[in-house]
Design a protein around this nucleic acid. Structure first.
Lengths: 251, 251
DNA sequence: ATTTATCCAATGATCGGACCAAACATGATG
DNA sequence: CATCATGTTTGGTCCGATCATTGGATAAAT
């Protein structure tokens, strides 16, 4: 079977070579790549071609570019950006319904929690308990510490995702949370939010300690379901349609 | 709160403007954007800057660039590429363990199947039955139609994902399948694969028809679990370690 | 009339050179 | 020692030119 001949675009060739070097760890985070003018000689290409390649790599989040002396392209630590960007665009462009994002989140958080129970290390549980304690303090401190309280709540979710021991789950959830952040303020209207949330989390942590996997999954799921409802209700109060809610993601 | 003034990079400004036009549907798939030389005048920027911007947009999968007469930048249909690229890179770079990919897949397919039961339209069920029939024919045709058989099996998964009615689930699963494709051949060693698979799918389709959500979820999950085992076992036979299996993803 | 070959114009791809602006290094100056 | 001025490195931008590819128009052959 014959296949169309591939036309080598210089730019893409450069991208591929550098990308391969990074993926194969010949270049590691923090490394400085040659300057544009050096790369120009290395690849025997014009500076424009080199620049296009670097632009693409920067957009992908694989390198960071600095100006001035000691400037140049530096290999970046692989971050969530790479995954997040794509998903975020999908959400923006397709106007994914809030309902879809919500049910996806419920399922993933439930899954993560279930796995977390099986794999919980003692220090993870200690971390959860410490966060819970911090939540309690911020709750009792009243409105002044409201932001800190919700920050704790967010950290609980992140830790739980991490405890799942599954990178894919952890990063996908991070992306969702990142996108939900845009309207996290909608939580604030809820009068007894902190007290309710603290109650839910105490139960969850307790169940994790006891290793009750099914119970944890169930608790987390209903916690997330309630959180989604709060967001939805908050949006209603602020006169946003459910459709706007989806669109509002990421400003 | 004040924020440092942003150094407007011309290139990024151009990217943002075109991107916004696409997201807001002022540009729709198939539309032809101005030529580079026209954009140069429109944005009052150099052609190099315009080209860098177009390169980035192309890399993101938002436009397609053609050369020659009637060439130029054409707006592309938003595809799975945008999501897939990021996830694929993550998998490549981080060498996600096969185990992680596997359990992520089990959970998502189970979820999708459960939702599919609730939302199944008559034509979807008809589609499943027609695919099942096709599977049966290819199974009875023996080895000659082996590839067609597995192609059907793949389509079953895709349809089920689509029936979930959740774009996020559907696209994430597509990405995973895309990545698993790289070693789909490992299925082939299995002697009674087709017969077993056909049996599993008949049960699944039957349960969907009867609207037995829990049963469907359970059947699909064990189907996927078995599929994962087959892949793992196949890899062992071919002398690949489980780690290689993870690395093998995407060539 | 239909097919085939050839030519032409539009357009992206690449190149080389130039200058500007930011970041860092160095040394003079108080 | 601290501070400022100056120079150097390096990315950011612009310009102009040439090459290569593509699609359409035109001419030639059948």
């Amino acid at each position: 079977m014959l296949v169309p001949v591939k036309q080598n675009r210089v730019t893409e060739d450069i991208v591929r070579q550098i990308e391969r070097a990074i993926v194969s760890h010949r270049l590691t985070p923090g490394d400085r790549i040659q300057t544009e003018r050096e790369l120009q000689k290395t690849f025997q290409a014009s500076r424009g071609a080199v620049r296009e390649a670097l632009s693409i790599l920067r957009q992908k989040g694989m390198i960071e570019i600095r100006r001035g002396g000691k400037g140049g392209a530096y290999v970046k630590q692989v971050g969530i950006d790479q995954v997040s960007e794509g998903l975020a665009f999908l959400i923006k462009y397709r106007k994914v319904a809030f309902q879809e994002l919500a049910e996806f989140r419920v399922a993933l958080e439930g899954l993560a929690a279930g796995l977390a129970v099986e794999r919980a290390a003692p220090e993870d549980i200690a971390g959860l308990k410490s966060l819970l304690e911090e939540m309690k303090l911020n709750m009792e401190a009243g409105e002044a510490s409201l932001m800190e309280f919700y920050s704790c709540e967010r950290k609980m979710h992140e830790l739980l995702a991490k405890m799942s021991g599954n990178t894919l789950i952890e990063w996908t959830l991070q992306t969702i949370h990142l996108n939900l952040d845009a309207y996290a303020e909608l939580h604030l209207w809820e009068k007894n939010g902190p007290r309710q949330l603290y109650g839910e989390w105490s139960e969850i942590v307790k169940a994790i300690q006891n290793g009750e996997g099914v119970m944890v999954t169930s608790l987390v799921r209903s916690h997330v379901v309630r959180s989604n409802q709060v967001l939805k209700e908050g949006a209603r109060r602020f006169g946003l349609s459910s459709k706007d809610l989806g669109r509002m993601i990421l400003k």
